[in-house]
Design a binder for these strands. Structure first.
Lengths: 246, 246
DNA sequence: TAGTGGTCTAGACCACAAT
DNA sequence: TTGTGGTCTAGACCACTAC
């Protein structure tokens, strides 16, 4: 049994054809028109059906393979993955994640100052001690509960944070507005006990388990633009992600 | 300044051309012949230099962009990312991760039995209550230190675990040997306190912070093949990953 | 044997960035 | 204006799977 959901392409649109197709296929999976386990038509037939070349059709399918929604097997076909769809950890800030989930959130600014980078910051951001950085400390709340204690360092050469709205917006939004295009990040997720100050700020007891995340982000020129060290309340937050074997 | 590291392709090799090029480019980045910030030659020139078509050259570059080693910007070029290279969380088991890092590791089998799936397991693996599953509990050691307490569930229809070497090998290796090709996984990383039994097994105190990971893995036909719930000692283990904006 | 995805070619035109 | 990556075409041959 093969499936061909209703898909149309608009060649006058500035949106790439492969992206139009990928978006409509994803929609079909999300709303159940393509059910888990369904096998799609083969690539050549799909391409012909939509009036596209096969490479373009393949590119559309590749987008969903990379998202973990489809799997391909040579000699067999392309099928919808059985599992429930989860949003992956993406290259977004906590503010963006919460906003997408429909959660209210705001941040309390504990500190924002320009200064010399620590040795650690120099290492992570590839800076010289003579460079200057913004050092930002915030406590993010959701539904008026303290959720995360965030420490971020941004080189002053990257953006000016002095007038930015870091209470209702997110750091990544501010960077985007400053023309910074974040493309890649390395991050490390771990756990440790809360210290006295951390516990007080997060409304936990001293020694309570906290989820930790350290991230360094790079822009579309490969330049390090941000390093963050965050602490999360594990009863309120966890990291979800999809892994794909390529 | 543009850079063209020494790359050769072997058209008689069964290894795809784009993969040969990607592997050699990655090697050049790892050993410093391509340094962070270096700009590569443009795609057309590289393709011509290697006697490849541009789409093939682009595919090679795409591999490294997906790994977070290169960034591309239209009108600008392709550059090496500044940051240190980290291995991403990949679709591998803890055993494979440790082996790749050169760590000795072995597992103590706390239990292996065939039985009825719990309601939870039915949900995660898409099973009926009448199906049967393997339930596996292990304690993994590295350098003779307890590192992780692992609980895994595998449908009996997927593989026979009864005779498998789960002490010195990993679960994913056993599944691979059984012809299972894991392609996609959803996972969630969090933290919580250790219970009494968990603390005793892991050599921690009750209430100590533990890193938690829950994962459901799917094969190349989209079928759920494994669900795991793991606990890690955070002083010995953390999750590293690279995020790429696509 | 028939059907599938995996790879590859040799071009083309376009949008965007830098100058 | 020039150079870059982004997209797209219309084919081709191959390796693997299932029957």
């Amino acid at each position: 049994m093969t499936v061909q959901p209703d898909i149309t392409v608009d060649r006058s649109s500035p949106v790439p054809l492969y992206f139009q197709v990928a978006a409509q296929l994803e929609e079909a999976i999300q709303d159940g028109r393509l059910a888990p386990g369904d096998r799609m038509d083969n690539e050549v037939a799909l391409a012909q059906h939509l009036g596209l070349s096969r490479p373009t059709m393949r590119q559309a399918i590749q987008v969903l393979v990379d998202k973990g929604l489809l799997v391909r097997k040579r000699g067999v076909g392309t099928q919808v993955v059985q599992g429930r769809i989860r949003r992956s950890v993406e290259l977004t800030s906590l503010h963006d994640d919460l906003a997408r989930a429909g959660k209210q959130s705001h941040a309390e600014i504990l500190g924002l100052r320009m200064g010399k980078p620590t040795e650690d910051a120099c290492t992570h951001l590839g800076l010289q001690p003579s460079d200057r950085v913004w050092v930002l400390d915030r406590l993010r709340f959701t539904d008026d509960q303290p959720l995360a204690l965030m420490h971020n360092v941004v080189p002053v050469a990257v953006a000016d944070l002095s007038g930015a709205d870091l209470v209702d917006g997110g750091l990544y939004g501010v960077l985007r507005a400053a023309g910074v295009h974040i493309r890649v990040a390395n991050q490390e997720i771990g756990a440790r006990r809360a210290g006295v100050r951390e516990a007080r700020l997060l409304g936990e007891r001293r020694g309570a388990p906290l989820l930790t995340m350290r991230r360094t982000a790079y822009d579309d020129k490969g330049r390090a633009v941000e390093h963050g060290e965050h602490l999360y309340r594990p009863d309120l937050y966890a990291f979800e992600m999809t892994l794909v074997d390529r």
